[in-house]
Design a protein around this nucleic acid. Structure first.
Length: 882
RNA sequence: GGGUGCGUAGCUCAGUUGGUUUAGAGCAUCUGGUUUACACCCAGAAGGUCAGGGGUUCGAAUCCCUUCGCACCCA
């Protein structure tokens, strides 16, 4: 049965994925081999596979498959993240569509919906990853809300609380009025928005004078508790000790002096609203100002907003500005562009809000994490340019607000004492369970008759990152049972592959958690991928609709094609400009490999045939060439230059193997081949497949199994990476010269319209004393019928030179002497220019004295080569002029 | 406003501690090809003042300064 002339990925991929799964090749158990562990950055249960996941997981799969081939006990742990805010938003939206309000549900009822949602959609990305070929150990699948994972998070909270690192505090937080929750700084995106700067008059008490302030948010005037002026501002010095009146509100507030105020900006007078601005809050603290919170949780005004109570902040802004204007308090407005914080999830404008939250002290936790990366490099970042950003963040780390006003997530294990009319939020205990909390509370508050009913658990959940920072440990149950065998074997993990956008809120925190809870780093290396963008450099996003359908791509180009396409141009840390053409290139490559196999397979062996000289030399050369490439590949891998590994392998297989070796070995049409050559060629092809397997797992396994019948323990996925051996550099170098000779012959054929089928003669003036070993190859690939050596110039020939060797091709009829002369003249000019620059260096005494001997010798060699070449060219020119 | 990184062929990028040619690769381009493995192909060619300017050095794409442009992070 003939092999089809093109590779059909559709018929192959599912077959081998199933085969690998059935043979448990992805599964890892503790054994004698060294471990090589990767934990997946758990995708959100809300997500669908996008290009970022594809890139990220392809890289992980490349690393883990190579580790497997290199004989490590490779373990890639998959899993998903509960993504509290994103999931809760999705579930709320789904319920809303069904006419159910979250507020009408009990916590338990809501959570049931959330779990249903998670079970229905949560595994989507993972099943899509299987299409990509991801060789995860699916028996180890974890979810951040699994019981054991949940317990680990709670245990860590209690531990940190008992160490005094977790505290409750009032902080200015990023409040999302739509989701009604706090957001971390990282979940806020800043955008420039066109707004207005309002100039408002504040009368001075017991004076006819007025002060003018400029504000972008007139509605916050209700919360003003001071006017602030710079100490050095001569214009207002006389106002020390005076008071101003808040317009319309008619409340008297102090005029205070602080260097914070920029004299140049606006009017030099700043209104202070401590409840609604971070900087104002600091000034407020320094000056003991009153704090007036004017907003409800949904950012409508509360009773402090007087008649605007209940109005949304933006409506109130308009209405109140009008009132100010009507009462002659508003002097003017100006267009003003400022940056506004928006919620990453809901896109609502963030309201800075003072609220009670749980915080984790970061300073001490950050120290070992900083040292691990900056000092001893026990954790390495690739590319290392991210070290600066990492350092900057950790040195200026702020306490981590870990509470979220959400239900979906790990509920904070703090229990408050109930009172007659509510809850006393100052009296609480932190415990693993309600029962344990009761015991603690009875002791702490010295009330032995307290019952379970007297305690109520904090309603809030923990920030999602507060569970994912434990991920590399908790997936092996290392938090609850640090002495368990699996944890000791698989942890620390080897590589983490993720995007630089979560360097801080995930990577850095995992490193902190590793040292804090296991006294060990979580991973050796962090590979930071770039962002996947479209051709116009825009980020891929759902709203732009510029993100291609991942599964559609796999259908069209094959998983191998897409994997290659993604990696072809994605140096670590550099953004990848995704272009389907790259997937096409990947698909074409698969087809090329397929056809290489088809060619070799088609060769009929004649056992009586001796090995030809060209085959022997060709095979020897490729054997070394592969070793040379292997050395480069190892070097690239060690530096996580994955796309360079791919490019090196790509060129090795396409150029060296297919274009050179197979052309050398290929018997004449319908002629048989000798047995030795075919089997040696297959062996080299198998090595190629091994090198390519991490990138193109499907087609390589398919061909590996096509070459011959293999038992299950002989599958490519678990075979052995080619051994690194010494290689003969001379043969490789000589082959390069051979290639140049052949290329020159082809070039002459093309320019002189000599068809490839027409055999030519070649006469060589071997001034370089170049080896004759490759002559049979030159004859075969150059279609040379007679190759002979001569001692002098040959007339009536076309010629070219390689180094100082001259090659003559006798032709029928006249030679265009002028054309030949022109060509030689051009060459001559080039080499003379080259010689010039070399001799300039060599005639510089300081160069000869100061440069290392090797460098000078190299220049001398260059000089000698150039001189010989020039001599040759001159002779040729001279001959033509005769 | 502060910080970080970047600017090399039409495009995407290499260029690893300054010294392998007068700077490389892949793709795209151009020219030629029905050489029975592959047109998802083969062969050949062209293409760059290394953003601009200045400096250090025997020697700079590489180090320093500066101008311009871009990206990202933080406020």
């Amino acid at each position: 049965m003939a092999t089809p002339s093109s590779y059909k990925h559709q018929e192959v991929e599912q077959k081998w994925y199933t085969y690998w799964m059935e043979n448990n090749f992805f599964h890892s158990e503790i054994n004698d081999k060294p471990s090589y562990t990767i934990v997946i950055p758990p995708p959100n249960v809300t997500g669908v596979l996008h290009m970022g996941h594809m890139l990220n997981n392809t890289i992980q799969d490349v690393l883990i498959r190579r580790a497997r081939l290199k004989g490590y006990n490779a373990c890639w742990v998959p899993g998903t993240d509960h993504a509290s805010i994103a999931t809760e938003a999705k579930v709320v939206a789904k319920l809303k569509a069904e006419g159910i309000k979250k507020t009408d549900l009990s916590r338990d009822e809501f959570l049931k919906h959330a779990w249903d949602w998670t079970h229905d959609y949560g595994g989507q990305i993972l099943s899509q990853l299987k299409r990509l070929g991801a060789s995860c150990d699916w028996d180890r699948l974890k979810f951040t809300m699994d019981d054991d994972m949940y317990d680990s998070v709670i245990q860590v909270f209690i531990d940190l609380y008992n160490k005094g690192l977790i505290y409750k505090g009032y902080r200015m937080v990023n409040w999302d009025p739509e989701a009604k929750t706090t957001l971390s700084d990282e979940e806020v995106i800043y955008e420039e928005q066109q707004g207005q700067l309002y100039y408002v008059k504040y009368p001075i008490v017991d004076s006819d004078e007025v002060l003018t302030i400029a504000t972008t948010r007139p509605e916050t005037i209700f919360g003003d508790t001071a006017i602030c002026i710079n100490h050095h501002d001569e214009r207002f010095k006389h106002l020390k000790g005076k008071k101003a009146v808040v317009p319309i509100v008619n409340r008297e507030i102090p005029i205070i002096f602080d260097d914070y105020v920029d004299m140049e900006f606006g009017t030099g007078c700043l209104k202070i609203t401590p409840a609604h601005d971070e900087n104002d809050k600091l000034i407020g603290e320094n000056h003991n100002l009153e704090i007036i919170d004017i907003f409800n949780d949904d950012a409508t005004l509360n009773a402090y907003g007087l008649e605007y109570e209940g109005q949304d902040r933006f409506e109130a802004r308009k209405a109140f500005a009008q009132a100010l204007s009507k009462n002659k308090y508003l002097i003017k407005t100006e267009d003003y562009t400022n940056k506004i914080g928006l919620s990453e999830r809901t896109k609502a404008v963030i309201e800075p809000k003072l609220s009670e939250q749980w915080f984790l002290k970061m300073k001490d936790l950050a120290q070992p994490a900083l040292e691990a990366v900056m000092k001893d490099e026990s954790v390495k970042l690739f590319p290392s340019k991210f070290k600066n950003t990492y350092k900057h963040w950790l040195e200026n780390v702020r306490d981590w607000n870990i509470s979220r006003q959400l239900w979906w997530g790990h509920q904070i294990p703090a229990y408050y004492l109930k009172t007659k009319d509510g809850v006393d939020r100052t009296k609480f205990v932190v415990a693993k369970s309600h029962d344990e909390a009761l015991k603690l509370a009875q002791d702490k508050f010295e009330k032995p008759d307290l019952t379970v009913k007297d305690l109520i658990q904090d309603e809030d959940s923990l920030d999602t990152w507060f569970s994912s920072w434990l991920w590399p440990m908790s997936v092996f149950d290392g938090i609850r049972h640090p002495d368990n065998e699996e944890f000791k074997y698989y942890y620390p993990t080897k590589d983490l592959v993720t995007g630089p956008d979560i360097l801080f809120f995930w990577v850095a925190r995992m490193i902190m958690a590793g040292y804090e809870f296991a006294d060990q780093k979580p991973f050796d290396n962090v590979y930071l991928t770039g962002l996947v963008r479209d051709k116009q450099r825009r980020k891929m996003s759902k709203s732009l609709g510029n993100s291609p359908d991942a599964i559609g791509l796999i259908d069209e180009f094959g998983a191998d094609g897409v994997r290659v396409g993604l990696l072809l141009s994605s140096a670590a840390g550099n953004d990848l400009l995704f272009d389907e053409a790259l997937c096409q290139q990947g698909k074409s490559f698969a087809n090329k490999i397929w056809n290489a196999h088809r060619l070799i397979e088609s060769w009929k062996v004649n056992p009586d045939l001796p090995q030809s000289n060209y085959a022997k030399i060709g095979l020897e050369w490729y054997k070394y060439r592969l070793q040379q490439a292997l050395e480069e590949i190892e070097d690239h891998y060690s530096k996580y230059r994955i796309s360079d590994v791919l490019m090196t392998s790509y060129k090795l297989v396409w150029n060296d193997f297919c274009s050179w070796l197979l052309e050398i070995l290929k018997p004449a049409y319908q002629q048989p081949i000798d047995a030795k050559t075919k089997s040696a060629c297959i062996q080299l092809f198998e090595d190629n497949l091994k090198l390519l397997h991490p990138f193109m797992p499907f087609i390589t396994e398919e061909l590996w199994q096509n070459i011959k019948k293999r038992k299950s323990d002989e599958a490519l996925i678990i075979s052995q990476w080619p051994k690194q051996e010494d290689f003969d550099k001379d043969i490789i170098e000589n082959f390069e010269i051979t290639k140049e000779i052949i290329t020159q012959i082809r070039s002459v054929r093309k320019s002189k319209n000599i068809p490839f089928k027409t055999a030519i003669d070649l006469k060589v003036e071997n001034k370089e004393n170049f080896t004759k070993d490759f002559d049979t190859i030159i004859k075969k690939l150059g279609q040379v019928s007679d190759l002979s050596y001569v001692k002098e110039q040959q007339e009536g020939t076309l010629s070219f030179s390689v180094k100082s060797n001259v090659y003559y091709i006798p032709v029928e009829g006249a030679i265009d002497v002028e054309e030949e002369k022109e060509k030689l003249q051009k060459d001559l000019e080039y080499y003379q220019g080259f010689l010039n620059s070399v001799e300039k260096k060599l005639s510089n005494k300081r160069f000869v004295d100061n440069a290392p001997k090797q460098v000078v010798d190299k220049e001398k060699q260059k000089q000698a080569d150039a001189l010989a070449k020039i001599e040759t060219l001159k002779e040729s020119l001279h001959a033509l002029e005769k």
